[in-house]
Design a protein around this nucleic acid. Sequence first.
DNA 1: AGCAATATTGATCATTTGATCAATAGACCT
DNA 2: AGGTCTATTGATCAAATGATCAATATTGCT
Lengths: 214, 214
Amino acid sequence: MSTTPRPRAARKAPDERTRDIAGAARELALEEGLAAVTLRAVAARAGVAPALVAHYVPSMESLIANTFETVVGAEIAEVEALIAPLDGPRARLGRLIRTLLDGTRDDVTVVWVEAWALGRRSESLARAVREQMDAWQSVLQGVIEDGVRSGDFDTADAPGVAWQLLGMIDGLNAQALVRWGDATDRGSLISHAVEGMLGLPRGALDSSSDPAAR
Amino acid sequence: MSTTPRPRAARKAPDERTRDIAGAARELALEEGLAAVTLRAVAARAGVAPALVAHYVPSMESLIANTFETVVGAEIAEVEALIAPLDGPRARLGRLIRTLLDGTRDDVTVVWVEAWALGRRSESLARAVREQMDAWQSVLQGVIEDGVRSGDFDTADAPGVAWQLLGMIDGLNAQALVRWGDATDRGSLISHAVEGMLGLPRGALDSSSDPAAR
DNA sequence: AGCAATATTGATCATTTGATCAATAGACCT
DNA sequence: AGGTCTATTGATCAAATGATCAATATTGCT
Protein backbone atom coordinates (compact mmCIF):
# COMPACT_ATOMS: atom_id res chain seq x y z
CA MET A 1 0.00 0.00 0.00
CA SER A 2 1.99 2.96 -1.23
CA THR A 3 0.57 6.41 -0.81
CA THR A 4 1.48 8.30 -3.93
CA PRO A 5 3.90 11.00 -2.89
CA ARG A 6 2.63 14.35 -3.98
CA PRO A 7 5.10 16.69 -5.70
CA ARG A 8 5.42 20.05 -4.13
CA ALA A 9 2.62 22.28 -5.38
CA ALA A 10 3.61 25.07 -7.73
CA ARG A 11 3.57 28.39 -6.08
CA LYS A 12 0.48 30.39 -6.96
CA ALA A 13 -0.94 33.76 -6.15
CA PRO A 14 -3.11 33.65 -3.03
CA ASP A 15 -6.21 34.60 -4.97
CA GLU A 16 -5.80 31.76 -7.39
CA ARG A 17 -4.99 29.24 -4.69
CA THR A 18 -8.03 30.35 -2.79
CA ARG A 19 -10.15 29.69 -5.85
CA ASP A 20 -8.49 26.32 -6.37
CA ILE A 21 -9.34 25.25 -2.86
CA ALA A 22 -12.89 26.49 -3.10
CA GLY A 23 -13.21 24.64 -6.40
CA ALA A 24 -11.85 21.42 -4.94
CA ALA A 25 -14.30 21.69 -2.07
CA ARG A 26 -17.13 22.30 -4.49
CA GLU A 27 -16.25 19.27 -6.60
CA LEU A 28 -15.98 17.07 -3.56
CA ALA A 29 -19.33 18.25 -2.26
CA LEU A 30 -21.03 17.47 -5.57
CA GLU A 31 -19.34 14.11 -6.02
CA GLU A 32 -19.35 12.74 -2.50
CA GLY A 33 -21.41 15.07 -0.37
CA LEU A 34 -20.65 17.76 2.16
CA ALA A 35 -19.44 15.26 4.72
CA ALA A 36 -16.58 14.40 2.37
CA VAL A 37 -15.32 17.95 2.46
CA THR A 38 -12.56 17.34 4.99
CA LEU A 39 -9.26 19.12 5.40
CA ARG A 40 -7.26 16.25 3.93
CA ALA A 41 -9.71 15.37 1.18
CA VAL A 42 -9.82 18.94 -0.08
CA ALA A 43 -6.04 19.15 0.07
CA ALA A 44 -5.63 15.94 -1.89
CA ARG A 45 -8.10 17.07 -4.53
CA ALA A 46 -6.43 20.44 -4.84
CA GLY A 47 -2.99 18.82 -4.98
CA VAL A 48 -1.58 20.61 -1.96
CA ALA A 49 -0.61 19.77 1.58
CA PRO A 50 -3.39 19.70 4.17
CA ALA A 51 -1.72 22.52 6.04
CA LEU A 52 -2.17 24.79 3.04
CA VAL A 53 -5.89 24.34 3.06
CA ALA A 54 -5.93 25.19 6.73
CA HIS A 55 -3.79 28.20 5.90
CA TYR A 56 -6.23 29.54 3.33
CA VAL A 57 -9.40 28.92 5.25
CA PRO A 58 -10.33 30.22 8.69
CA SER A 59 -11.89 26.88 9.60
CA MET A 60 -13.33 23.84 7.90
CA GLU A 61 -16.72 24.81 9.22
CA SER A 62 -16.64 28.02 7.26
CA LEU A 63 -15.31 26.30 4.15
CA ILE A 64 -18.21 23.88 4.28
CA ALA A 65 -20.73 26.67 4.76
CA ASN A 66 -19.24 28.60 1.85
CA THR A 67 -19.17 25.50 -0.32
CA PHE A 68 -22.83 24.89 0.36
CA GLU A 69 -23.58 28.48 -0.54
CA THR A 70 -21.65 28.23 -3.79
CA VAL A 71 -23.27 25.00 -4.92
CA VAL A 72 -26.80 26.02 -4.11
CA GLY A 73 -26.35 29.58 -5.26
CA ALA A 74 -25.25 28.34 -8.66
CA GLU A 75 -28.28 26.11 -8.90
CA ILE A 76 -30.62 28.98 -8.15
CA ALA A 77 -28.97 31.25 -10.69
CA GLU A 78 -29.05 28.52 -13.29
CA VAL A 79 -32.73 27.74 -12.89
CA GLU A 80 -33.62 31.40 -12.70
CA ALA A 81 -31.90 32.03 -16.01
CA LEU A 82 -33.64 29.04 -17.50
CA ILE A 83 -37.16 30.22 -16.77
CA ALA A 84 -36.68 33.95 -17.14
CA PRO A 85 -37.19 34.02 -20.94
CA LEU A 86 -40.30 31.84 -20.85
CA ASP A 87 -43.63 33.31 -21.68
CA GLY A 88 -46.00 33.76 -18.79
CA PRO A 89 -46.18 32.58 -15.19
CA ARG A 90 -47.72 29.23 -16.00
CA ALA A 91 -44.96 28.28 -18.38
CA ARG A 92 -42.31 29.56 -15.99
CA LEU A 93 -43.69 27.77 -12.96
CA GLY A 94 -44.30 24.56 -14.86
CA ARG A 95 -40.82 24.56 -16.28
CA LEU A 96 -39.28 25.37 -12.92
CA ILE A 97 -41.01 22.46 -11.25
CA ARG A 98 -40.20 20.02 -14.03
CA THR A 99 -36.59 21.14 -14.08
CA LEU A 100 -36.08 20.79 -10.35
CA LEU A 101 -37.69 17.37 -10.37
CA ASP A 102 -36.10 15.93 -13.47
CA GLY A 103 -33.50 14.04 -11.49
CA THR A 104 -30.51 15.68 -13.12
CA ARG A 105 -29.54 17.53 -9.95
CA ASP A 106 -29.34 14.74 -7.45
CA ASP A 107 -25.82 15.80 -6.58
CA VAL A 108 -27.16 19.12 -5.39
CA THR A 109 -29.94 17.36 -3.51
CA VAL A 110 -27.34 15.39 -1.60
CA VAL A 111 -25.73 18.65 -0.60
CA TRP A 112 -29.09 19.97 0.59
CA VAL A 113 -29.88 16.92 2.66
CA GLU A 114 -26.47 16.82 4.26
CA ALA A 115 -26.68 20.53 4.97
CA TRP A 116 -29.94 20.05 6.84
CA ALA A 117 -28.31 17.39 8.98
CA LEU A 118 -24.90 19.00 9.48
CA GLY A 119 -26.48 22.37 10.03
CA ARG A 120 -27.67 21.15 13.38
CA ARG A 121 -24.07 21.09 14.51
CA SER A 122 -22.68 24.07 12.64
CA GLU A 123 -24.15 27.48 13.19
CA SER A 124 -22.52 28.98 10.11
CA LEU A 125 -23.85 26.19 7.92
CA ALA A 126 -27.29 26.58 9.45
CA ARG A 127 -27.22 30.25 8.62
CA ALA A 128 -26.19 29.53 5.04
CA VAL A 129 -29.02 27.03 4.73
CA ARG A 130 -31.56 29.58 5.90
CA GLU A 131 -30.22 32.15 3.49
CA GLN A 132 -30.38 29.86 0.50
CA MET A 133 -33.83 28.68 1.42
CA ASP A 134 -34.91 32.29 1.58
CA ALA A 135 -33.38 32.86 -1.83
CA TRP A 136 -35.25 29.92 -3.34
CA GLN A 137 -38.46 30.98 -1.70
CA SER A 138 -38.03 34.45 -3.07
CA VAL A 139 -37.69 33.13 -6.61
CA LEU A 140 -40.78 30.99 -6.29
CA GLN A 141 -42.75 33.76 -4.65
CA GLY A 142 -41.87 36.10 -7.50
CA VAL A 143 -43.20 33.72 -10.11
CA ILE A 144 -46.37 33.09 -8.14
CA GLU A 145 -47.02 36.77 -7.53
CA ASP A 146 -46.60 37.45 -11.22
CA GLY A 147 -49.19 34.80 -11.86
CA VAL A 148 -51.60 36.23 -9.34
CA ARG A 149 -51.24 39.68 -10.88
CA SER A 150 -51.82 38.37 -14.37
CA GLY A 151 -54.79 36.34 -13.25
CA ASP A 152 -53.12 33.03 -14.04
CA PHE A 153 -52.99 31.93 -10.41
CA ASP A 154 -55.43 32.29 -7.59
CA THR A 155 -54.11 32.41 -4.08
CA ALA A 156 -54.23 34.87 -1.22
CA ASP A 157 -50.95 33.61 0.23
CA ALA A 158 -48.20 33.68 -2.36
CA PRO A 159 -45.37 33.51 0.20
CA GLY A 160 -46.99 30.53 1.89
CA VAL A 161 -47.53 28.70 -1.38
CA ALA A 162 -43.90 29.37 -2.28
CA TRP A 163 -42.70 27.86 0.97
CA GLN A 164 -44.94 24.87 0.57
CA LEU A 165 -43.85 24.26 -2.96
CA LEU A 166 -40.22 24.54 -1.99
CA GLY A 167 -40.68 22.04 0.80
CA MET A 168 -42.47 19.66 -1.50
CA ILE A 169 -39.77 19.82 -4.13
CA ASP A 170 -37.04 19.28 -1.58
CA GLY A 171 -38.91 16.40 -0.02
CA LEU A 172 -39.57 14.67 -3.31
CA ASN A 173 -35.97 15.01 -4.38
CA ALA A 174 -34.65 13.79 -1.05
CA GLN A 175 -36.97 10.85 -1.30
CA ALA A 176 -35.80 10.04 -4.79
CA LEU A 177 -32.27 9.90 -3.44
CA VAL A 178 -33.18 6.83 -1.44
CA ARG A 179 -35.68 5.28 -3.80
CA TRP A 180 -33.28 5.03 -6.65
CA GLY A 181 -34.40 2.20 -8.85
CA ASP A 182 -38.10 2.83 -8.51
CA ALA A 183 -38.07 5.97 -10.61
CA THR A 184 -41.59 7.28 -10.56
CA ASP A 185 -41.76 10.43 -12.59
CA ARG A 186 -41.48 13.08 -9.93
CA GLY A 187 -42.89 15.92 -11.94
CA SER A 188 -46.27 14.80 -13.18
CA LEU A 189 -48.21 14.40 -9.95
CA ILE A 190 -46.86 17.46 -8.25
CA SER A 191 -48.31 19.54 -11.05
CA HIS A 192 -51.77 18.51 -9.95
CA ALA A 193 -50.80 19.33 -6.39
CA VAL A 194 -49.74 22.82 -7.38
CA GLU A 195 -52.85 23.25 -9.45
CA GLY A 196 -54.76 22.55 -6.26
CA MET A 197 -52.83 25.16 -4.35
CA LEU A 198 -53.22 27.81 -7.04
CA GLY A 199 -56.81 27.22 -7.97
CA LEU A 200 -56.04 25.96 -11.45
CA PRO A 201 -58.00 23.40 -13.41
CA ARG A 202 -56.47 19.96 -13.66
CA GLY A 203 -53.76 19.85 -16.29
CA ALA A 204 -53.20 23.58 -16.44
CA LEU A 205 -49.57 23.15 -15.53
CA ASP A 206 -48.73 20.15 -17.63
CA SER A 207 -46.02 20.33 -20.20
CA SER A 208 -48.24 20.94 -23.22
CA SER A 209 -47.55 24.65 -22.97
CA ASP A 210 -43.81 24.16 -22.64
CA PRO A 211 -42.05 23.75 -25.98
CA ALA A 212 -38.89 22.41 -24.37
CA ALA A 213 -40.69 19.55 -22.68
CA ARG A 214 -41.93 17.86 -25.82
CA MET B 1 -13.01 19.60 34.99
CA SER B 2 -13.94 16.52 36.96
CA THR B 3 -15.53 13.68 35.09
CA THR B 4 -18.05 12.20 37.45
CA PRO B 5 -16.88 8.69 38.25
CA ARG B 6 -19.58 6.21 37.38
CA PRO B 7 -20.33 3.49 39.94
CA ARG B 8 -20.12 -0.02 38.62
CA ALA B 9 -23.38 -0.89 36.92
CA ALA B 10 -25.58 -3.40 38.66
CA ARG B 11 -25.51 -6.76 37.02
CA LYS B 12 -28.57 -7.36 34.88
CA ALA B 13 -29.91 -10.13 32.68
CA PRO B 14 -28.69 -9.76 29.10
CA ASP B 15 -32.21 -9.25 27.79
CA GLU B 16 -32.82 -6.38 30.12
CA ARG B 17 -29.45 -4.79 29.49
CA THR B 18 -30.06 -5.07 25.78
CA ARG B 19 -33.32 -3.22 26.20
CA ASP B 20 -31.62 -0.58 28.36
CA ILE B 21 -29.06 0.09 25.72
CA ALA B 22 -31.61 0.23 22.93
CA GLY B 23 -33.66 2.60 25.07
CA ALA B 24 -30.69 4.86 25.74
CA ALA B 25 -29.95 4.96 22.04
CA ARG B 26 -33.56 5.79 21.28
CA GLU B 27 -33.63 8.63 23.78
CA LEU B 28 -30.41 10.06 22.45
CA ALA B 29 -31.66 9.91 18.89
CA LEU B 30 -34.84 11.78 19.78
CA GLU B 31 -33.13 14.37 21.93
CA GLU B 32 -29.96 15.04 19.96
CA GLY B 33 -30.27 13.24 16.67
CA LEU B 34 -28.84 10.06 15.21
CA ALA B 35 -25.37 11.52 14.98
CA ALA B 36 -25.30 11.73 18.76
CA VAL B 37 -25.76 7.98 19.07
CA THR B 38 -22.11 7.17 19.69
CA LEU B 39 -20.60 4.33 21.64
CA ARG B 40 -19.64 6.53 24.56
CA ALA B 41 -22.76 8.66 24.59
CA VAL B 42 -25.02 5.63 24.67
CA ALA B 43 -22.90 4.08 27.41
CA ALA B 44 -23.07 7.24 29.51
CA ARG B 45 -26.82 7.51 29.08
CA ALA B 46 -27.31 3.86 29.99
CA GLY B 47 -24.96 4.19 32.95
CA VAL B 48 -22.51 1.53 31.85
CA ALA B 49 -18.99 1.36 30.50
CA PRO B 50 -18.52 1.96 26.78
CA ALA B 51 -17.15 -1.54 26.40
CA LEU B 52 -20.47 -2.96 27.56
CA VAL B 53 -22.35 -1.26 24.78
CA ALA B 54 -19.87 -2.66 22.30
CA HIS B 55 -20.36 -6.03 23.94
CA TYR B 56 -24.12 -6.00 23.45
CA VAL B 57 -24.18 -4.65 19.94
CA PRO B 58 -22.52 -6.10 16.86
CA SER B 59 -21.51 -2.63 15.68
CA MET B 60 -22.55 0.94 16.18
CA GLU B 61 -23.73 1.00 12.59
CA SER B 62 -26.31 -1.67 13.35
CA LEU B 63 -27.35 0.01 16.58
CA ILE B 64 -28.00 3.20 14.70
CA ALA B 65 -29.97 1.42 12.02
CA ASN B 66 -32.04 -0.38 14.63
CA THR B 67 -32.59 2.82 16.57
CA PHE B 68 -33.86 4.53 13.45
CA GLU B 69 -36.19 1.63 12.83
CA THR B 70 -37.53 1.74 16.38
CA VAL B 71 -38.16 5.47 16.39
CA VAL B 72 -39.83 5.60 13.01
CA GLY B 73 -41.68 2.34 13.47
CA ALA B 74 -43.24 3.69 16.64
CA GLU B 75 -44.31 6.84 14.83
CA ILE B 76 -46.00 4.85 12.10
CA ALA B 77 -47.82 2.63 14.55
CA GLU B 78 -48.93 5.61 16.57
CA VAL B 79 -50.36 7.52 13.63
CA GLU B 80 -51.96 4.41 12.21
CA ALA B 81 -53.76 3.80 15.48
CA LEU B 82 -54.83 7.41 15.58
CA ILE B 83 -56.59 7.41 12.22
CA ALA B 84 -57.92 3.86 12.19
CA PRO B 85 -61.11 4.61 14.14
CA LEU B 86 -61.98 7.68 12.09
CA ASP B 87 -64.95 7.63 9.80
CA GLY B 88 -64.17 7.50 6.11
CA PRO B 89 -61.10 8.06 3.93
CA ARG B 90 -61.41 11.83 3.82
CA ALA B 91 -61.42 12.15 7.57
CA ARG B 92 -58.58 9.66 7.91
CA LEU B 93 -56.38 11.27 5.28
CA GLY B 94 -57.09 14.77 6.55
CA ARG B 95 -56.26 13.83 10.08
CA LEU B 96 -53.14 11.96 9.04
CA ILE B 97 -51.81 14.97 7.18
CA ARG B 98 -52.65 17.41 9.94
CA THR B 99 -51.12 15.15 12.54
CA LEU B 100 -47.88 14.67 10.69
CA LEU B 101 -47.59 18.37 10.05
CA ASP B 102 -48.61 19.71 13.43
CA GLY B 103 -45.01 20.20 14.52
CA THR B 104 -45.19 17.94 17.55
CA ARG B 105 -42.88 15.35 16.01
CA ASP B 106 -39.90 17.45 15.08
CA ASP B 107 -37.68 15.12 17.06
CA VAL B 108 -38.63 12.32 14.71
CA THR B 109 -38.11 14.58 11.72
CA VAL B 110 -34.55 15.19 12.85
CA VAL B 111 -34.03 11.45 12.90
CA TRP B 112 -35.41 11.18 9.38
CA VAL B 113 -33.21 13.93 8.00
CA GLU B 114 -30.08 12.57 9.62
CA ALA B 115 -30.94 9.10 8.40
CA TRP B 116 -31.11 10.35 4.82
CA ALA B 117 -27.67 11.87 5.18
CA LEU B 118 -25.98 9.13 7.20
CA GLY B 119 -27.60 6.46 5.08
CA ARG B 120 -25.28 7.44 2.29
CA ARG B 121 -22.40 6.07 4.37
CA SER B 122 -24.10 3.16 6.07
CA GLU B 123 -25.65 0.43 4.01
CA SER B 124 -27.64 -0.99 6.91
CA LEU B 125 -29.08 2.40 7.74
CA ALA B 126 -29.91 2.97 4.09
CA ARG B 127 -31.77 -0.32 4.04
CA ALA B 128 -33.69 0.60 7.18
CA VAL B 129 -34.63 3.94 5.64
CA ARG B 130 -35.97 2.26 2.55
CA GLU B 131 -37.98 -0.17 4.64
CA GLN B 132 -39.57 2.51 6.76
CA MET B 133 -40.34 4.63 3.74
CA ASP B 134 -42.04 1.62 2.22
CA ALA B 135 -44.01 1.16 5.41
CA TRP B 136 -45.18 4.76 5.40
CA GLN B 137 -46.03 4.62 1.75
CA SER B 138 -48.04 1.49 2.34
CA VAL B 139 -50.12 3.18 5.03
CA LEU B 140 -50.81 6.16 2.81
CA GLN B 141 -51.58 4.01 -0.19
CA GLY B 142 -54.07 2.03 1.86
CA VAL B 143 -55.99 5.12 2.88
CA ILE B 144 -55.99 6.45 -0.66
CA GLU B 145 -57.15 3.18 -2.17
CA ASP B 146 -59.97 3.04 0.34
CA GLY B 147 -60.97 6.47 -0.81
CA VAL B 148 -60.85 5.54 -4.46
CA ARG B 149 -63.02 2.49 -3.82
CA SER B 150 -65.55 4.50 -1.87
CA GLY B 151 -65.59 7.21 -4.50
CA ASP B 152 -64.16 9.83 -2.16
CA PHE B 153 -60.94 10.17 -4.12
CA ASP B 154 -60.23 10.20 -7.81
CA THR B 155 -56.85 9.04 -9.00
CA ALA B 156 -55.57 6.33 -11.26
CA ASP B 157 -52.26 6.13 -9.46
CA ALA B 158 -52.77 5.58 -5.76
CA PRO B 159 -49.21 4.32 -5.15
CA GLY B 160 -47.77 7.33 -6.92
CA VAL B 161 -49.93 9.77 -5.00
CA ALA B 162 -48.90 8.06 -1.78
CA TRP B 163 -45.23 8.48 -2.63
CA GLN B 164 -45.72 12.10 -3.58
CA LEU B 165 -47.63 12.88 -0.45
CA LEU B 166 -45.00 11.20 1.69
CA GLY B 167 -42.26 13.20 0.03
CA MET B 168 -44.18 16.41 0.49
CA ILE B 169 -44.77 15.78 4.17
CA ASP B 170 -41.15 14.91 4.77
CA GLY B 171 -39.97 17.95 2.87
CA LEU B 172 -42.27 20.33 4.68
CA ASN B 173 -41.24 18.96 8.04
CA ALA B 174 -37.56 19.07 7.20
CA GLN B 175 -38.00 22.64 6.06
CA ALA B 176 -39.76 23.59 9.27
CA LEU B 177 -36.77 22.27 11.17
CA VAL B 178 -34.69 25.07 9.74
CA ARG B 179 -37.31 27.77 9.52
CA TRP B 180 -38.09 27.75 13.21
CA GLY B 181 -39.46 31.11 14.11
CA ASP B 182 -41.42 31.70 10.95
CA ALA B 183 -44.11 29.18 11.77
CA THR B 184 -46.43 29.12 8.82
CA ASP B 185 -49.13 26.59 9.44
CA ARG B 186 -47.83 23.59 7.58
CA GLY B 187 -51.11 21.80 7.27
CA SER B 188 -53.53 24.19 5.62
CA LEU B 189 -51.98 24.67 2.21
CA ILE B 190 -51.01 21.07 1.68
CA SER B 191 -54.64 20.13 1.95
CA HIS B 192 -55.31 22.08 -1.22
CA ALA B 193 -52.35 20.36 -2.82
CA VAL B 194 -53.71 16.96 -1.98
CA GLU B 195 -57.15 17.96 -3.17
CA GLY B 196 -55.50 18.75 -6.47
CA MET B 197 -53.88 15.34 -6.63
CA LEU B 198 -57.04 13.49 -5.71
CA GLY B 199 -59.52 15.43 -7.79
CA LEU B 200 -61.33 16.91 -4.84
CA PRO B 201 -63.05 20.29 -4.68
CA ARG B 202 -61.23 22.99 -2.78
CA GLY B 203 -61.71 22.62 0.94
CA ALA B 204 -62.80 19.00 0.85
CA LEU B 205 -59.97 18.00 3.14
CA ASP B 206 -60.09 20.87 5.57
CA SER B 207 -60.62 20.21 9.22
CA SER B 208 -64.36 20.93 9.28
CA SER B 209 -65.06 17.22 9.05
CA ASP B 210 -62.62 16.34 11.79
CA PRO B 211 -64.10 16.71 15.27
CA ALA B 212 -60.69 16.59 16.93
CA ALA B 213 -59.39 19.55 14.95
CA ARG B 214 -61.87 22.10 16.20
C1' DA C 1 23.59 37.64 -8.09
C1' DG C 2 21.81 38.39 -3.94
C1' DC C 3 18.02 39.19 -0.97
C1' DA C 4 13.59 39.89 1.06
C1' DA C 5 8.91 38.36 1.03
C1' DT C 6 5.88 34.75 1.33
C1' DA C 7 3.70 30.50 -0.46
C1' DT C 8 4.14 25.85 0.93
C1' DT C 9 5.14 21.97 3.77
C1' DG C 10 6.35 18.18 7.35
C1' DA C 11 5.93 17.22 11.84
C1' DT C 12 3.15 17.18 15.49
C1' DC C 13 -0.76 17.68 18.79
C1' DA C 14 -5.33 17.09 20.83
C1' DT C 15 -9.97 15.06 20.05
C1' DT C 16 -13.22 11.89 18.89
C1' DT C 17 -14.61 7.77 17.17
C1' DG C 18 -15.34 2.34 17.04
C1' DA C 19 -13.45 -1.73 18.63
C1' DT C 20 -10.88 -5.64 21.26
C1' DC C 21 -9.45 -8.36 25.31
C1' DA C 22 -7.70 -9.89 29.51
C1' DA C 23 -9.03 -9.11 34.14
C1' DT C 24 -12.52 -8.34 37.66
C1' DA C 25 -16.56 -8.91 40.42
C1' DG C 26 -21.11 -10.17 41.36
C1' DA C 27 -24.88 -13.61 41.26
C1' DC C 28 -26.43 -18.17 41.54
C1' DC C 29 -26.12 -23.13 42.49
C1' DT C 30 -24.64 -27.04 45.10
C1' DA D 1 -19.10 -21.62 52.20
C1' DG D 2 -17.13 -22.47 48.16
C1' DG D 3 -17.03 -22.64 43.27
C1' DT D 4 -18.61 -21.69 38.69
C1' DC D 5 -20.54 -18.89 35.31
C1' DT D 6 -20.72 -14.61 33.09
C1' DA D 7 -21.90 -9.64 33.20
C1' DT D 8 -18.99 -5.80 33.49
C1' DT D 9 -14.93 -3.05 33.13
C1' DG D 10 -10.23 -0.57 32.44
C1' DA D 11 -6.71 -0.35 29.45
C1' DT D 12 -5.49 0.07 25.06
C1' DC D 13 -5.39 0.37 19.89
C1' DA D 14 -6.01 2.21 15.27
C1' DA D 15 -8.06 5.52 12.39
C1' DA D 16 -9.73 10.02 11.17
C1' DT D 17 -10.45 14.68 12.12
C1' DG D 18 -9.11 19.91 12.64
C1' DA D 19 -5.49 22.73 13.77
C1' DT D 20 -0.74 24.98 14.72
C1' DC D 21 4.06 26.28 13.76
C1' DA D 22 8.76 26.34 12.72
C1' DA D 23 11.24 25.29 8.66
C1' DT D 24 11.79 25.30 3.66
C1' DA D 25 11.50 26.56 -1.09
C1' DT D 26 10.22 29.66 -4.65
C1' DT D 27 9.20 33.93 -6.56
C1' DG D 28 10.17 38.59 -7.77
C1' DC D 29 12.63 42.75 -6.91
C1' DT D 30 16.95 45.51 -6.53
